[in-house]
């Protein structure tokens, strides 16, 4: 049972990051390579507040969200906007942005991973015969709520519709009164804020280290690819699949094989069903 919970907890984390990728893809047409690094920054915000009690929970999250939103803004301004015209250049700049953030974190915090305790959430508790951390449950709730929320935002609101239109045809969208640049910027800021908030939780669950972003990147990308590009519910499905796979592989075969199995899963999914299980067949942007 504990393995199950471990898998679901990881899955929730990957699902959330996959959702963040989806925001960029569906609302702005950009794969934001740097979003896991924003999550890492959120983790360090958590680190700076380490040992805090539940009372200042809102403060921690507000600071993290703020930092994340600002980073999202900067990424859009510096990495995405100048390269948007060039087509292929954006691949380079978003990779660059990711490593600027990672490099800065390395300089400031060094190579080690820092354990973070916050709000007492690193406590274990029993559920249905298995043990899990409080923070895992929180992450799961956050994952479901945020994915549902973003889904509604994208499909049912004017803002979401405008973002989707702007991704498909920015010029026509502008002629319908859509401020394409503002919409894209807002999408990046939203994703950044959410990323940093989740980062605080990830710090408690895993730790705060400069490489956190990169280590989450690959698993989350598999979740994204499995679940489907353009589908928010798919992110949840993909995350759960990858999380469970990792947990069970680590438990029964060996931790070092988890990554290899995830890679195999990625290859199989890409070969058999490129747009993922629930993905939009027509959104072949990735």
């Amino acid at each position: 049972m504990t393995v199950l919970w471990a898998g679901l907890a990881l899955g929730a984390l990957y699902a959330t990051v996959a959702m963040l990728f989806n925001i960029g893809m569906a609302q702005a047409g950009v794969f934001n390579f740097a979003i896991p690094q924003v999550l890492m920054v959120g983790a360090f915000v958590g680190y700076e507040f380490a040992g805090a009690s539940l009372a200042i929970l809102p403060v921690v999250f507000v600071v993290a969200a703020g930092a994340g939103a600002i980073l999202g803004l900067l990424i859009e301004l510096v990495a995405v906007r100048p390269a948007a015209r060039g087509g292929h250049g954006i691949l380079i700049t978003t990779v660059g942005a990711a490593f600027v953030i990672e490099g800065a974190a390395f300089i400031k915090y060094g190579v080690g991973g820092h354990n973070v305790t916050l709000f007492g959430w690193d406590r274990l508790f029993d559920l249905l015969g298995g043990r899990l951390f409080v923070v895992d449950a929180v992450i799961a709730v956050v994952a479901v709520v945020s994915i549902a929320g973003v889904y509604v935002l994208s499909r049912r609101t004017r803002w979401g519709l405008e973002g989707r239109a702007a991704t498909l045809d920015p010029e026509s969208a502008a002629l319908r009164g859509v401020n394409v640049t503002a919409n894209r910027l807002q999408a990046f800021m939203l994703a950044g804020a959410l990323a940093a908030v989740v980062g605080v939780l990830a710090a408690v669950k895993i730790n705060a280290s400069y490489g956190l972003g990169t280590s989450l990147l690959v698993y989350s990308f598999v979740a994204f690819a499995v679940g489907g590009i353009g589908s928010y519910p798919g992110c949840l499905v993909g995350g759960v699949v990858v999380g469970l796979l990792q947990a069970y592989t680590a438990r029964y075969i060996g931790a070092e094989y988890a990554l290899m199995i995830a890679f195999l899963l990625l290859l199989i999914v890409l070969l058999a069903r490129p747009t993922g299980l629930l993905g939009n067949r027509q959104l072949r942007i990735v």
Partner: peptide, 21 residues
């Protein structure tokens, strides 16, 4: 986008609509 909001509508050449919506 500002002009559009002020009431200037433009139908571009070539049936430009959002095919996937």
């Amino acid at each position: 986008w500002r002009r559009a909001r002020k009431g200037i509508g433009f139908v571009q050449e070539g049936k430009r609509i959002f095919g996937q919506l």
